[in-house]
């Protein structure tokens, strides 16, 4: 039951995307997401779709692996599509009793499905080609400027990487506690959702206690090894921009410009497409 939790689903590889600086990938994803929201026309989405297809090809991650990410949001996508389909006012195409489907509704639904799947695919390309550690490093360095406005960037990044390190340990521990309680007659697998949620409480209490004990030990171990915050720290694997990273920034800029141009100047009139 707990085996399914995977965070930072990294797909090992050596493609150019894997080797890019995590800061580039973070910014690229951010630009991609902003463009999707800002330039919401058919022409712009064709540009985004082509760009996405290129990235997937370059990343060398199998398509089935990437599409797996879509499965998680399938229900969300269905619900949004249905709501848009039935609840958008406008010219009706079909009307049965009080339920009506409008042209605008269809357009909206199609638009939403594409936007959501592009969002998920775009960000999963980033997480698939970046290790969790690189990601936290990238965040720490990339958001370093926020220290000036008193955001504890180093501390947040440190917490994230420690959390990532302890996920498998705590998962193991949770499984152990579950087995121990099942051995004494606890039942986690039957009954309604309320009953199952209630059954988890006796699991969570010992898990929290043990997590706090671990945290205490870890704090002691970190202190013993001279940890005193981010000041005066050096890096074993510092992030250094290479030429390919600058090239990638250029590609990202070009993409944003293309999206803008497509949105501003190309107006495709297609039936049932926004």
């Amino acid at each position: 039951m707990l085996k399914e939790i995977t965070i930072g689903q990294y797909y090992p590889g050596t493609s150019i995307l894997h080797r890019l600086d995590p800061r580039v990938k973070l910014l690229g994803t951010l630009v991609f997401i902003i463009c999707l929201f800002a330039f919401g026309t058919t022409a712009a989405y064709i540009v985004a779709g082509v760009a996405l297809a290129c990235m997937i090809t370059i990343s060398q991650v199998p398509l089935s692996f990437i599409l797996r990410g879509l499965r998680m949001v399938l229900i969300l996508m269905l619900v949004t599509a249905l709501f848009n389909l039935f609840l958008t006012p406008g010219t009706a195409i079909v009307q049965i009793w009080k339920i009506r489907i409008t042209v605008e509704g269809v357009k909206m639904a199609v638009h939403m499905v594409f936007r959501l799947s592009f969002l998920v695919l775009g960000s999963s390309i980033m997480t698939l080609t970046t290790t969790p550690n690189q990601l936290t490093d990238g965040l720490e360095k990339g958001l370093g400027w926020m220290k000036k406005i008193h955001v504890p960037v180093h501390e947040i990044a440190m917490m994230m990487s420690i959390a990532l390190r302890f996920i498998p340990i705590l998962t193991d521990e949770a499984n152990r506690i579950m087995s121990a309680q099942e051995a004494r007659g606890a039942d986690f697998h039957s009954g309604g959702i309320v009953k199952r949620a209630k059954a988890l409480i006796p699991l969570l209490v010992p898990l929290f206690v043990s997590a706090f004990r671990r945290a205490n030990d870890l704090a002691l171990a970190m202190e013993a090894r001279g940890y005193h915050g981010g000041v005066g720290r050096t890096r074993m694997k510092p992030l250094v921009y290479r030429r390919r990273d600058f090239a990638a920034y250029l590609v990202i800029a070009c993409f944003a410009v293309l999206m803008f141009l497509a949105w501003r100047f190309i107006h495709l009139e297609l039936p049932f497409l926004p």
């Binding site: 990487s161 671990r214 030990d217 002691l220 970190m222 090894r225 050096t234 890096r235 074993m236 694997k237």
Partner: peptide, 29 residues
């Protein structure tokens, strides 16, 4: 070196964990 091996390893990769103390001391890369 403490009792519980899991609770004193900070990094997710062996070599990074060994480097942790050195990073704290500000040793050059």
């Amino acid at each position: 070196v403490f009792q519980n091996p899991d609770n004193q390893i900070i990094a997710s990769v062996v070599e990074e964990d060994v480097g942790f103390g050195l990073e704290n001391q500000g040793v050059p890369t």
